[in-house]
Simulated assay, not measured.
Amino acid sequence: MATSKLKTIHFWAPTFKWDLSIANIADFQKPPENILYLHTVITPKNWNLFSVNVAMAATGVYQLSRKIK
């Protein structure tokens, strides 16, 4: 019996990681002095995970540049 790819962790884990990027975008209005210097290193395993990591990096770099200014 074949299982749906939608029921595997390989689909859901990167999909839910998009919440982190959305949270970063929501924090764009946050005062820079309230931004923390937390870093995460992630090794992509598939294209969905890769794309969410790129989005996280972009939003994180933007936040870091705001903090530095």
Rank of each mutant, 00 (worst) to 15 (best):
M1E: 10
M1K: 05
A2Q: 07
T3A: 06
T3D: 08
S4R: 11
K5V: 10
L6F: 15
L6M: 14
L6T: 11
L6I: 12
L6A: 13
K7T: 15
T8N: 07
T8M: 11
T8Q: 13
I9S: 10
I9H: 02
I9M: 12
H10S: 04
H10Y: 06
H10E: 11
F11A: 11
F11R: 09
W12Y: 04
A13Y: 12
T15M: 13
T15N: 10
F16W: 07
F16T: 07
K17E: 07
K17W: 05
K17I: 00
W18G: 08
D19N: 13
L20Y: 11
L20H: 10
S21I: 00
S21N: 03
I22V: 15
A23C: 07
A23H: 01
A23N: 03
N24A: 11
I25R: 15
I25W: 09
A26F: 13
A26H: 14
A26S: 14
D27P: 01
D27N: 15
F28Q: 14
Q29R: 14
Q29E: 15
Q29K: 15
K30P: 02
K30L: 14
K30S: 09
K30C: 04
P31T: 02
P32I: 03
P32N: 04
E33F: 04
E33C: 00
E33M: 01
I35K: 05
I35E: 03
Y37I: 05
Y37E: 15
H39E: 11
H39D: 05
T40S: 13
T40R: 12
T40G: 06
T43V: 13
T43S: 04
P44C: 03
P44S: 14
P44Q: 03
K45C: 07
K45P: 00
K45H: 11
K45L: 13
N46W: 01
W47D: 09
N48H: 08
N48E: 10
L49I: 02
L49T: 03
F50K: 12
S51R: 12
S51N: 12
V52G: 02
V52H: 01
N53G: 08
N53M: 09
N53E: 09
N53I: 07
N53K: 05
N53D: 07
A55Q: 10
M56I: 03
M56A: 11
A57H: 06
A57S: 08
A57I: 08
T59G: 04
T59V: 02
T59K: 00
G60I: 00
V61P: 00
V61H: 06
Y62N: 12
Q63N: 06
Q63C: 02
Q63W: 01
S65W: 03
S65G: 01
S65I: 10
S65E: 13
R66D: 01
K67G: 01
K67W: 03
K67Q: 06
I68G: 00
I68P: 00
I68M: 04
